[in-house]
Design a protein around this nucleic acid. Structure first.
Lengths: 132, 132
DNA sequence: CTTGACCCTGTAGTTGCTACAGGGAGCATA
DNA sequence: TATGCTCCCTGTAGCAACTACAGGGTCAAG
């Protein structure tokens, strides 16, 4: 059994975030000490680690919730998990493509900037609606 | 002079968003008609177009605010603009790198998923804190 | 017995909008 | 003139996923 601070350290999670996860129902309300402190067992540690790892991989809290409920059921097949992961992957592919397009536009803009004063700044010009 | 709805159409911006920009001080409060409707001139159109284009390029509202104040001053040199753009670019590079790393992790995970039941799901396993 | 680190609840802030609710304005049509 | 209809107004609340207080209580060490 460990305190919320210890759990936070073990999972690299802020105390407020753990309480937040409890509030939104991702983590079950833990037992309390006589002094009303939360205490967490190994299962809670495992669950929070799962959540954090999923979040690190960019899954939304809703997706994490779905993954958790699938593991909680235990009997359900792997297909739903696979679909969630693939959907997420597709979204990441999209974001990468968007950012690469953005980078291209930005770098074109930046390269055209000579460093003079604002009246002839190519960046401002590039952002402006009319050609001067 | 045009209504807020017309300005919105011209800049592909929702009416609520325009009012929001006004509220946070990105757009000056425009003139009003007798019936208390906002009316916008060409300068407002140019300014909002600038904002939208900057936003499309991924600049934050704070960055847009900085860019706008530089153009408003007119005399300041281009270096600050350049720095803002380069900082933004660096951030995008970072995001791309992060997402590519993520994609790699995810694809490894997904490929290992056989499609059996949850107890042997490699995705769940990959997300779990302990080996089994 | 006091100091300091930790914990508690509850609420508000962050970013960049978006979505109402509950009304008023302005124009066309019957 | 009445009735729709579309647009506009203000003000407030909601979204994601936390984060940051304020204003207190608990607990172990010295």
């Amino acid at each position: 059994m460990r305190s919320i601070g210890a759990l936070g350290k073990a999972t690299n999670t802020k105390v407020e975030t753990i309480r937040y996860y409890e509030r939104i129902g991702l983590l079950a309300p833990p037992q309390r000490t006589d002094g009303n402190y939360r205490t967490y067992d190994d299962e809670a540690l495992a669950r929070l680690s799962f959540i954090r790892r999923s979040r690190d991989l960019g899954f939304s809290l809703d997706q994490v919730r779905a993954l958790l409920s699938l593991t909680d059921q235990g009997t359900q097949d792997c297909k739903t998990v696979d679909r969630i992961a693939r959907d997420h992957m597709a979204e990441i592919e999209r974001k990468i493509a968007d950012l690469i397009a953005l980078r291209h536009e930005l770098s074109t803009m930046i390269e055209s900037c000579g460093g003079g004063n604002i009246s002839e700044c190519r960046i401002i010009e590039a952002l402006s609606p009319f050609d001067n």
